[in-house]
Nucleic acid binder design. Structure first.
Ligand code: ZN
Ligand code: ZN
Ligand code: ZN
Ligand code: ZN
Lengths: 157, 157
DNA sequence: ACTCTTGTTGATAATAAAAATCAAATAAGA
DNA sequence: TCTTATTTGATTTTTATTATCAACAAGAGT
């Protein structure tokens, strides 16, 4: 798969080193499409073949991957962040999530409308929609201006 | 406003008492439409007129309000839950949020499309969309069945 | 208004996710 | 290989949220 090449490239572009720990975490997430792992869950999988890797490193790595656009951070209101690979080679594949308020099961939806989507989902997945949430992440006009003016003292967050 | 009457009714229907603490928290949220307060922020406002009310009560009350549908819990990935009044008398008013990834500012969007919405937002708000998240909350087919069969031993979560 | 019962509260301790610390280890370029 | 800035593992710290529990108060019935 070429995901790995893109991953290495993104790391490099951002000025980060390719370490064993980062490669291993990347592989765990990449090998589990459709899953939405928490840091602890990823840590448990990583430990099997690499017991020397620490939990703190998993947290750090996930934060870094999110920052450089390798993964998405998801929130299902279950007390922790969850992560999935971002579709590096096809950004249009961004999918939506169905969260069961009873059993917590998470289903993925591969289409991108909303009005149609709701009725489609209710029928096709036999899912009773109680609520939905839509968020946009981006830059407001103020920050676009500010970002253009002062590109100098850009330090890490 | 009739919000308060609906609030009292919902509390009553669910078998909860109307306490001073609950009334005060309700008033703080109701008097701040367009805001998205964290528990701590609500606590700070509540304290001004009611220093006897404790933080734990604010957390408990918010959780209760969410459960009976008085408020929505929002997540902007800033380390805490945030809350806003649900539109009790007009459910169709559910709005969407613009979250600036730089300054954290939150803007509200009052329309309900998505494809049109994206281009509308980019122009009208001069906002660069980097990402969006859509979640549906509801019941999957399995749980609908299960819920129909065993409505007996329904205890609190 | 008084009582009784049960839900509720305030103060505090307990949890748990995530971040910070820091000496030791290591990737990557010369 | 050597150098050096980056990264890591183990651990502690931080902080949002929940649990605990005795004291308290809402609301139904008298
Ligand atoms: Zn997904
Ligand atoms: Zn379910
Ligand atoms: Zn809002
Ligand atoms: Zn901004």
């Amino acid at each position: 798969m070429k995901f790995y090449e893109i991953f290495k490239q993104k790391l490099n572009e951002a000025g980060y080193k390719l370490t064993t720990q980062r490669r291993v975490v990347f592989e765990v997430i990449g090998a589990n499409e459709g899953k939405h792992f928490s840091p602890e869950e990823i840590y448990d999988i990583v430990k099997v073949d690499h017991p020397e890797i620490g939990l703190a490193t998993v947290y750090r790595t996930l934060k870094l991957f999110e920052k450089i656009g390798i993964i998405y951070r998801l929130n299902f209101n279950d007390g922790c962040s969850r992560f999935e690979m971002s579709h590096l080679d096809d950004e249009s594949h961004r999918h939506h999530h169905l969260v069961c308020i009873e059993c917590g099961k998470i289903l993925e939806v591969k289409i991108d409308s909303l009005q149609e989507l709701e009725s489609y989902v209710e029928k096709e997945y036999s899912f009773d929609i109680h609520n939905h949430t839509l968020k946009f992440f981006g830059l407001c006009s103020d920050c676009k201006k500010r970002r253009n003016k002062c590109k100098k003292e850009s330090t890490e967050s």
